[in-house]
Every structure is written in structure tokens, then in C-alpha cells.
């Protein structure tokens, strides 16, 4: 069922995100023409047009990011907690599947926005001799750091860790919104105001928990652990730090998830 939920979720969001991402790519072509043609001439009108096209490109990228973000909030609120919720929340689907469908769809669009942004940047700077330049850079890298081959596994692992951290971080941002909405909308009156309040109160509570946890950790004698860490090779230290940051990000994400699921399952109160 999760697959079907995501399919319909992509259908609902794709009709906005699809054209938006296409606009970004088209705008990148426009930007490319600006940089290499319009801005190179001494014609004032063409120069102005070049600046307009270039700004349009950056605005398009920015808008696609904002849109992905707004859709994340809007879909959860409108599709689950407002009138459409009468249809969605009575599907033979568990609350967990609903949350995961919304979460994964949001992450898919965020990844798509990043990917399209990267591709569009390439389009923007593309020129005939670009391939040549890239080749030159790679060659220089090769000369500069002969250890590259040796360090490659660490580099790959680091990239994976970074991707994981970004995904968990993104999930945490989503779940923060979801939890605030789920809690706020469980009340009979002032659902919207209480959702906004929840948005600020929940992290505050998490902050207090964090403080208490830090205090308790400080009470323990962890000097041995610190020394052990310092004794490790540089690369291992980096990996452990990445993992540590990911875990610390995952804890509030998990708490927000539990809160969201509980409120959707046991405190649903559609107006």
C-alpha cells in the first residue's frame, strides 16, 4: 500500500513540481545564452535582457526549492487534516504508511530539486571548451594528490554519510512540521493557531530534553572515551563524527515521528 500511496502522492505533487523543474531547466538554457552571448555584446538592450534572463534562472531555482518545501507542509495539512482527510484518512491504510508516504515523497522532491539545480548549473556554464577544462582540472587533481586512489574509499564513504545526514536532517524538518500540525489539529478549536504554537513549543521541549541529557552525560566520566577517540586515525574520527551527528539528528526526528503517529491514530479530530 505504501507504494500506491507514494504513487498517488507523486501524482498530486508532480502536476506542480514537474512543470516547475522543467522551467528551471529551460531558464538555465536562457541563462547560458545570457552569459555567453547577450552579456558579451555592447548592445544595452541585449545586456539588460541578459540580466533579466539570468535573474529569472536564479529565481526559478529558488522558487522550485520553496515550492517543494511548501508542498511538503501543504500536502500533510490539506490531504490528511482538512476536507480531503475524509477521503485519505478512511483509506484501508495504516497511519504509519500515511506518514512515510508523505515523508518519502517530500524527500524525493527535495532530491529532485537538488539534482535539477545541479544539472541546470552545468547547463548554465556549458560551453564548447568546458569538457576540455574539466579534463584539465581532473588532470591537475591527479598530479596534486597522488593519494587520491588511496583515499577514494574514505571519500565515497564520506559522501554516503553526508547523503544519509542530509536525508535524516530533511526528514527531521518534515517531521517537525508534521508533529506540530498533527498535535495542533487534534484540538477542537483554533487548530491553525495551535499548530503554529506547536511548531515553536515542540523544539523547545526537545531543547530541554537535550539539556538534561547533556547534563547527565557530563556527570558520567567519559574521559576514557575521549582519549580513545583521539587515538583513532583522522579518517575514522571524521566518520564517527558524521555518524554521531546523524544519530543526534535522528533522535528528535524519531520523537516527532512517534508524536505524529500517536496523534493521527489516537487523537484524530477532523473539523
Amino acid at each position: 500500500m505504501l507504494r500506491k500511496l507514494i504513487k498517488h502522492e507523486l501524482r498530486a505533487t508532480g502536476r506542480m513540481m514537474g512543470p516547475m523543474l522543467l522551467i528551471v531547466l529551460v531558464a538555465a538554457v536562457g541563462g547560458n545564452i545570457s552569459t555567453y552571448r547577450l552579456l558579451e555584446t555592447s548592445n544595452g538592450v541585449l545586456n539588460t535582457l541578459g540580466i533579466v534572463l539570468l535573474s529569472a534562472f536564479f529565481i526559478a531555482i529558488l522558487t522550485s526549492g520553496v515550492m517543494a518545501f511548501a508542498l511538503m507542509v501543504e500536502r500533510f495539512y490539506k490531504n490528511l487534516l482538512r476536507d480531503e482527510g475524509y477521503l485519505t484518512m478512511t483509506l484501508p491504510v495504516s497511519v504509519h504508511e500515511h506518514i512515510w508516504a508523505k515523508l518519502l515523497t517530500s524527500l524525493i522532491w527535495w532530491i529532485a530539486v537538488l539534482a535539477v539545480a545541479a544539472v541546470s548549473m552545468l547547463i548554465l556554464v556549458f560551453s564548447r571548451n568546458m569538457m576540455q577544462e574539466i579534463g584539465d582540472i581532473l588532470a591537475q587533481l591527479h598530479i596534486a594528490d597522488l593519494n587520491l586512489a588511496q583515499n577514494l574509499p574514505h571519500l565515497v564513504l564520506f559522501c554516503v554519510e553526508l547523503a544519509l545526514l542530509l536525508a535524516v536532517g530533511g526528514a527531521c524538518v518534515c517531521l517537525h512540521f508534521y508533529a506540530a500540525l498533527a498535535v495542533g489539529c487534534s484540538f477542537t478549536h483554533h487548530k491553525d493557531a495551535l499548530s503554529v504554537a506547536g511548531f515553536f513549543v515542540l523544539p523547545a521541549i526537545w531543547h530541554v530534553i537535550q539539556r538534561v541529557a547533556m547534563f547527565l552525560i557530563n556527570l558520567m566520566n567519559l574521559e576514557g572515551v575521549g582519549l580513545w577517540l583521539q587515538g583513532l586515525p583522522q579518517a575514522t574520527q571524521t566518520h564517527l563524527t558524521m555518524l554521531g551527528v546523524t544519530v543526534v539528528t535522528a533522535i528528535p526526528a524519531a520523537l516527532y515521528y512517534v508524536l505524529t503517529a500517536h496523534f493521527l491514530k489516537n487523537r484524530l479530530n477532523l473539523g
Binding site: 482527510g85 475524509y86 484518512m89 484501508p92 495504516s94 479530530n269 477532523l270
Partner: peptide
Amino acid sequence: KLANGLLTPDDGTITVCGMRPGKGSHA
């Protein structure tokens, strides 16, 4: 709405085909 699980009862119970409203009863 209570029978569809769109609201949560304050007191008492409601069952559909012997189930509390949820994934199973929605089917």
C-alpha cells in the same frame, strides 16, 4: 465520523464488524 475513525470518542466504544475504526474497518 466516529464510525470512520475521523474523530476519537471521549467515552464509550464504537466498533465496525467487531473492530475499532482503523485500517481494518476502513476496508
